[in-house]
């Protein structure tokens, strides 16, 4: 059990979201980086659907108020346990009174802190994920704040066995997003005002910078490259995280977890599902590149990612941690 000393830039409860409620206008939501969320859960002995804390950038701090096993995955936010480093991609037993501090961003953007037993929060529409714009999910539909207490949803089976585990395979966070082309040809009767299709060579020509207004809804892309000429408005259609919209200002938006399930901006490309976790580890000011790929390559990348998430976890030597737990 943990108490929030400081939430940092943004800390929310997230799981794998609300697939199936999009027809009611509810975003999929959930962890921006579901890969890290699942791995943190696996290290902590939880099912992949358990809720974690999503910690954005640096500055978050927690006090252990009851002994438990935690695991950290995703971005390296300089986590420490007391005076020692708390390595990303590992689980650890933590004792009452110890402090967990995510000091500052070293790489990536979002760290996932799993608690053995899963982070407790009420299920809303089948998920514990916080949806900030809708003010529901997580703890009261809001970001975590000082003195919030993070409890396990269920007691973990064997805390000692779960401590000191290390994730065996590195996750690739290269800031390169592979994309597949998409456009609605302008031959619909109510789209006769569309201009010619935009020139999409700009999309992959040079890096884009993640804009200041980027958030869990989407990454706004600002280019050293010229803006892509806009097309027009379409009758709203279903979209999802990974779709790249082109709003009237010509600056593309890569939709992310909290994206509205429908949109009327033209979609010019779609990020492959296997690269979305890379986008989740970007913050405003970071550079990202896009590269065209093929459907076959996208499916192969997805298969490889699913296999990675199924990797067996061997317990670390971890003698010291286990001894600490018993002491």
């Amino acid at each position: 059990m943990l108490r929030v000393i400081a939430p940092g830039a943004l800390c929310t409860v997230q799981d794998l979201g609300r697939p199936g409620y999009q027809r009611f206008g509810v975003p999929v939501g959930g962890a921006m980086d579901p890969v890290a969320c699942i791995i943190a859960n696996r290290l902590a002995g939880n099912p992949p659907s358990a809720a974690c804390l999503e910690i954005t950038a640096g500055g978050a701090a927690f006090e252990v108020v009851a002994p438990c096993v935690i695991a950290v995955a995703g971005g390296d936010l300089g986590a420490t346990l007391g005076s020692r480093p708390l390595p990303t991609w590992t689980s650890a037993f933590v004792r009452t009174g110890q402090r967990i501090h995510f000091e500052a961003r070293r790489s990536g953007a979002r760290a996932y802190l799993a608690l053995a037993g899963g982070v407790d929060a009420p299920l809303v529409l089948g998920s514990r994920s916080t949806y900030l714009p809708g003010r529901f999910g997580g703890l009261g539909g809001r970001a975590l704040q000082m003195d919030d207490v993070i409890r396990p949803a269920s007691p973990p089976a064997d805390p000692i066995r779960l401590a000191g585990r290390i994730w065996p395979k590195p996750v690739d966070y290269t800031p390169l997003i592979r994309i597949l082309p998409f456009h609605i040809p302008p031959d619909l009767p109510d789209l006769s005002d569309l201009n010619d299709l935009p020139d999409l060579n700009n999309l992959t020509a040079l890096p884009w910078r993640v804009g200041a207004t980027s958030n869990r809804i989407g990454l706004r892309l600002e280019g050293a490259v010229p803006h892509i000429e806009r097309a027009g408005d379409l009758p709203s259609f279903g979209v999802f995280p990974g779709a790249i919209q082109l709003p009237p200002d010509g600056r593309p938006i890569l939709l992310m977890a909290d994206a509205q399930p429908t949109g009327g901006y033209p979609v010019i490309a779609v990020a492959i599902q296997a690269d979305l976790h890379r986008a989740a580890q970007l913050l405003p000011g970071d550079e990202v590149r896009f590269a065209w790929t093929t459907r076959d390559a996208a499916v192969a990348a997805w298969r490889a990612l699913c296999e990675l998430l199924d990797s067996p976890i061997a317990a670390d030597e971890g003698v010291e941690l286990a001894a600490a737990a018993q002491g």
Binding site: F182, I184, F237, F240, V270, I272, Q273
Partner: peptide
């Protein structure tokens, strides 16, 4: 219209 590798948009024109 295939929309990425894991989605289809089916439009009535």
């Amino acid at each position: 219209c295939p929309m990425g590798e894991a989605a289809l948009l089916i439009e009535c024109t």
